[in-house]
Every structure is written in C-alpha cells, then in structure tokens.
Design a protein around this nucleic acid. Structure first.
Lengths: 218, 218
DNA sequence: TAGATTGTTAATCGATTAACAATC
DNA sequence: TAGATTGTTAATCGATTAACAATC
C-alpha cells in the first residue's frame, strides 16, 4: 500500500485465465447476440463457475440471470483490459529459425502485434528476406524504434548474446522485452521484461512422464 | 483422497520454482563443494527464503546451519525429481520454422530430451535435412515410436492440423504431447498433454504495456 | 563461544469455493 | 409463475510468511 502503484495490478494467473476464456468464448461467437453461461465457460476451462463470474464481474461485464453473458461483451471486455485493440509495435532481434517462425506467424496479429522490423547482427543475413520483411542491421534499431513508435523488442538471439541485444534495444528506447532466450537479463526498472521459459515446459513433461512409470529405474 | 493417486503430485508452480532454482544454482557450480544458502537463492529468484528451504526439504536435500546447501546436492535432487537424467525420447511432428528451431536447439539435451525423428506430412519436405535429421513421412511414425521407445511427441503443426497429428502420434503409442499450436486437443486420459501457450506471453506484455501508459487512448 | 543459518511449527494472507439471496 | 443463473457475501482451503528453537 505504501508503494506507488495506483492500478489494481492484475496477477499473472488472472491474465492466463482471461486468455483461456477468450480462446474458448471466441468459438462461441457464431451468431450475433449469442450468449454463454459461467457454467459453460467453467466446464470448458475446468474450473469453478463462481471464479468465472468473479473474473467477469471484475472486468465490468454484466450477465443476465437465466441467460448468461453476451459473448461479444465478454470478448470485448477481455480485449479491452488486455489491450488487444491497441497496436503493439515491436522489433524482433535475432533472425534464426525461432525468430523467423515468430516473425512470420500470422496468428499474433489478432492480439495487436505489429512487427515493424527484424534485425540481426550477422552481416551475411542483412538484406535477406523473411516473409515480407528485410533483415536490417542492428545500427538501424534506433531509427526504427523511434520512427515507428516501437514499444517492444522480441529477443530470439543465442543465450550469450541476450544481454548485449537487450542493452541495445533498451538504448534504442523500447519499454518492454519478450525474451525467448534462457538467460535472465538485467534491465532498468521501467522496462518490463517477460521471459518465455520454454524449457520449463520440458521440465513439466519430464516430471509427468517420470510419474507415469514410477516403477522403473534406469 | 478418494482418487487413486498415490504420488504426492507436485503442483505446476513448484516445478516452475524448481526450474528457476536449478538455473540459478547451476551458475554457482564452480568449484567442487561449493555451497549456497537459501537466502542467496531467494534473493536471486525474488522470493522468501523460507519457501526455498521448504521446497528443498521436500526434495530431501539437507543443508548445514551456518553454511547452506551443497550446490551439487541441490542440482542432483532437482535433476532426480524432474527426471532430467532419464532420456526423454521424442518425435517432432511438423517441420516448419518453429519445428526446425526446436529440433535443432541443442540446449534441451541437458534436460534429457532426445529427438528420435522428425516428421512432416508435406511430401516435398520428406527426405530433406534439418540439422542432422532427415524429415520422415508420417507413415513411419509407428515404427520409430515403437522401435526407439519414444514416449513423447512435440507438435509444431498448423492449428488446423493439430488434432489430426495428435491422433496419429497417440495411435503410434506416445504417452505425452508437447503442443505448440494454439488449438486445444483431445486425448485419452492416459496421455499427458502439455500445451505451450505462447500467446499468453503476448497477452501479458500487451496488458503491462497498457498499464504503463494509462493516459492514452487511440 | 557467538552467531549465522537451517528446519519446522504456528500465524497470516490470499485465492478458491460454497452458499444463497436477487433477478429476469 | 417457477426455475435457472447471476452477483456477492461468508466459509474454506492452501500457499506463503513469520517466528523461533535447533545446530554446527
């Protein structure tokens, strides 16, 4: 309370739930005016219906007793709170296979992602095409970031190069970083860093597989 | 309690914390016999030291008052419980850019991942090389899965093809699926499915960026 | 020894769930 | 109207943190 935060500060778990609702409820957007009950969402998402109602109430979506929630309302409220309707302009640094995959994946556009430039430090790659984008040299970062009002950098560089790349994009002026490497990186307080821990997924699989065959020893 | 589970059933949050500890403590493995205190881990990972001690105690790692925990012990315990020392044999289905990136990323080997075959349904791709692997036709799935004792399938296919691919790998006999598509998929109870929700990361970024400039409207 | 750190029990906190009155 | 479903308050549950005695 003594901290200077004025926003309600949503927890990551809530954002995850909202995304989950969003994806399921999207499938229900068939006819205009279609509705969905908290029980139905809860069923699909495997959780208690009270929590669904509480989450939706927190977003300001009102339902109708005996009817449920208007599908379009639910979607609009989630889009609004998560900011999908505002462009999220980004640069991508490190055009390896993963970077190329992200740069050319069309599915992110529905969440507002707009990749304004792709960069690499390898002189051999500069000028090459990836999808409809030309790979640019790192030196052009500041111009693109400032010129296009880019807020975010997607980092898909080798682990050793992560901090160096982060420093460059921060200097260029981005305010958020989406890091796919597995090095933790240092950034000033006012830069939001989201680290995508893909290897945690692997650890999760590994653990569950081990649980499934508890009688073995190698 | 009335359910048939006999294992303690670790929560996902715990697995995540253990991975986090693992990555940090790894950096401390310089000299044999090096130690680390719960306070140091807590500092690095930004959490309470009591929780670190509780987690390590749950794994059976014992520390020494005034000294801390043996780094090698901590690492070994985490490796053991998460199953990193047992090979996790997998096939990868869908050799697009993302699939290629995963197949050729060497970093997963330290968690035991062993990709035994990469598959695609596109006849043009079959026979091509990705890293040191040849792309195989889907028809060969059962042979590879059974022949090599493959437990896991990594699915990096387009969304529309996800369920079809899942059905095929399940029929071939895998017991776990690591799904990178954003379609939820149906699988029998005895197949563990881990869905890697990358777009949730994007939603998280989008939300936090919106928080950072609460005074704008587009 | 004195003091830092562990290991563990008890207290707190927050998140989830249950209960139920309000409503259409 | 009767009944399903919302919205919300109260109860429960579990996870985190605080406290502190044990220990090297």
């Amino acid at each position: 309370m003594s901290e200077g935060k004025n926003q309600p500060e949503m927890k990551h778990a809530l954002i995850e739930r909202l995304m989950h609702y969003y994806q399921f409820v999207n499938d229900r957007l068939d006819t205009a005016g279609s509705t969905v009950t908290s029980g139905e969402i809860a069923e699909l998402v495997q959780m208690d219906d009270t929590l669904v109602r509480k989450d939706l109430a927190a977003l300001g979506v009102r339902g109708q007793p005996r009817v449920g929630f208007n599908v379009a309302d639910v979607l609009a409220a989630i889009r609004e709170v998560l900011g999908f309707d505002e462009a999220l302009r980004a640069v991508l640094v490190g055009v390896g296979q993963l970077g190329g995959a992200i740069a050319s994946y069309p599915g992110f556009a529905r969440y507002g992602l707009d990749i304004c430039g792709i960069f690499d430090s390898d002189p051999d790659k500069i000028g090459q095409l990836r999808g409809r984008q030309v790979i640019l040299p790192m030196g052009r970062l500041p111009i693109v970031v400032r010129g296009r009002g880019v807020s975010t950098a997607i980092l898909t560089v080798p682990s050793e190069a992560t901090q160096e790349a982060a420093d460059q994009v921060i200097r260029a002026g981005v305010k958020a970083i989406w890091n796919f490497g597995n090095m933790k990186l240092k950034a000033p307080e006012d830069v939001y860093v989201r680290h995508e821990h893909i290897s945690t997924g692997l650890a999760d699989l590994s653990y569950h597989l081990k649980q499934m065959k508890p009688d073995w020893h190698s």
